[in-house]
Design a binder for these strands. Structure first.
Lengths: 335, 335
DNA sequence: CTGTTAGCGCTTTCAA
DNA sequence: TTGAAAGCGCTAACAG
């Protein structure tokens, strides 16, 4: 069914080597060029990349393992990663761990078995053990958005703690003292942001009542919605809420909208990420992550590691931390 | 760096054939079993799937080519596809066409070159030509959510036209006559829904003024937002709007929320898809697509084609159309 | 510039 | 049950 280089050989009478060389950009006589071109077209020839990579030992495919392909932040990052990799002549193979550590383990193994040239991981697991198969196979990998705590992996992150501190300080400067948080409990960025939230308020001498700390298991609109409802129904409502991810912001915003309360008059909001920044009034004061740059730096680092591997050198691990841009908008009022 | 089956041979003294057979579930003497197990562990052996697939001529990988990995509907479908494929022992390789036909072409070619066992396509292009490389290589493919008009591909779709008609009839029954639509201009589902919208109103003897038909290039929240703003600023506002996809619904809903108008008092809404159904008040009257079943039927059909190919048979093309469930909620008022 | 040949890592006859 | 050997489709010396 599918034709091979041997079919081309039979049709043109040329040798495999000549054909292969031409197909890989080498020089052959014009008449042979024509012959091969003709045969390729007539036979609908497409190289078998697997066979090729078996001998070249590189696939020109990067694997991307994501915690959830359903997540909008992830989707956006994937788009940029794909675009940039394509520009560099690499394909992208995406595997979805679906917030499940076992699936993630399997995905890493699968990437190794497929012999990808490198891996980008947005991990579920907090244990770097999971990367062992890649490590053993000598396949470089970069952590993106989240990293493995207490490990020294190459990583491309944003300054979660500083950004959080900055956002909270905006609230403090406007004399808010009853500040709540909606965050996720189970992953790197959620924890970082929660800790920084607590630190910043502690430093300001403010005690946060436990009911102001609402933690969800996974990023979800519905968690944000219900979390905000809970906050709004407290006897002593917070005057401001920090929303630690996009889904939560979305849900929380809906809950406010349909409540009797208005933002910012009754409730000030600050948030991380805003995929619909231009769409919502009042515009939320947010930390905007540099999505494209996150992707670009990740690819750059991964490509560097790939080259290094080819040359047998190895420079120290890199921990790239990109700044989040704070956009101050109308969602925070003076108290 | 990476160990091979030859390393196992050297360590155990067994032959390649024996090792390979055991690794693939064959029977060997208990003592050899132990030897191999030990070697595998010690050497961190992982099969090279590429080499394996070169001889078996199957990869146990299905390719999924999506029009936009950023799209929430796509993300959800991907999650289910991944889950179900995994259950069947298949991996999934995702390529993002980013709404770009050239990229899509390249993606298909790339899938063929990687020798995937089958392809799921949610196409950008409306020309089935794009699938030629897969066709030539004898790789089966299934269209999901969108198909190629005037072609006979296997497809798994929803009944876009009927559902639209049903939603519009809900409005008509409540005596709405000024009905507008926000839809996308450039793709299969948008066109189907638009045409059915127009048909239904024509059948009802209602003429739709051109300014009630707002078409966007791509699914986007911002298009929905601005489209709805335009509708709300008309001298003669519509009393009801049909929102033809999730992103548009999202954006439109935001626009209404921050306008002086209320749903359903001033404006009735019906929509396709609702990823945040439980989150928003008033709850929108929507057509809910059977996401998991869409994914399941697609995989089922693809697996069938794969088997057929192995056996050299071929049954007629299948065009699976799944029903959309209409959820009548509070977003439509009586006129 | 072209062709012969070996070999990438693995599976699969076929004999033993 | 095991092993020797051929071969999947391709590339990369090397010699001509």
């Amino acid at each position: 069914m599918r034709s091979t280089i041997v079919d081309i050989k039979n049709r043109t009478g040329l040798s495999l080597a000549t054909i292969s060389k031409y197909l890989n950009g080498g020089n052959v006589l014009p008449e042979n060029k024509a012959k091969i071109d003709e045969a390729v077209k007539a036979l609908n020839y497409q190289v078998n990349e697997n066979a090729r990579s078996l001998v070249t030992n590189q696939t020109r495919i990067m694997g991307v393992v994501v915690f959830s392909v359903e997540n909008l932040f992830v989707g956006t990052l994937l788009r940029y990663l794909g675009e940039i990799l394509r520009k560099h002549g690499y394909g992208m193979m995406i595997c979805d761990s679906n917030n499940n550590i076992e699936a993630e383990k399997q995905n890493i193994r699968s990437m190794v078995q497929k012999n990808v040239d490198g891996i980008v991981i947005m991990p579920v697991s907090e244990d770097v053990e999971i990367m062992k198969p890649a490590e053993n196979a000598g396949i470089p990998y970069i952590c993106l958005d989240r990293t493995f705590p207490d490990s020294d992996c190459d990583s491309v992150l944003v300054n979660n703690r500083e950004t959080t501190r900055h956002l909270i300080k905006i609230l403090l400067r406007r004399r808010h003292t009853r500040i709540a948080i909606l965050a996720s409990r189970n992953e790197y960025t959620g924890k970082e942001r929660l800790e920084s939230f607590q630190e910043t308020l502690r430093d300001a001498g403010i005690t946060v009542p436990p009911e102001y700390i609402v933690l969800e298991d996974l990023h979800s609109i519905s968690a944000g919605y219900h979390g905000m409802q809970r906050l709004l129904s407290l006897k002593t409502r917070p005057t401001a809420v920090f929303l630690s991810n996009y889904e939560v912001l979305m849900g929380a915003f809906m809950a406010v909208n349909e409540s009797e309360f208005r933002c910012p008059d009754d409730l000030s909001l600050v948030a991380f990420d805003n995929m619909f920044a231009d769409v919502v009034r009042p515009r939320i004061t947010v930390g905007v992550q540099p999505m494209e740059e996150l992707a670009a730096r990740t690819v750059e680092l991964l490509l560097m590691r790939t080259e290094e591997k080819g040359q047998g050198v190895e420079t120290p691990r890199q921990h790239i931390v990109l700044p989040v841009v704070i956009q101050e908008n109308e969602s925070v009022r003076e108290m």
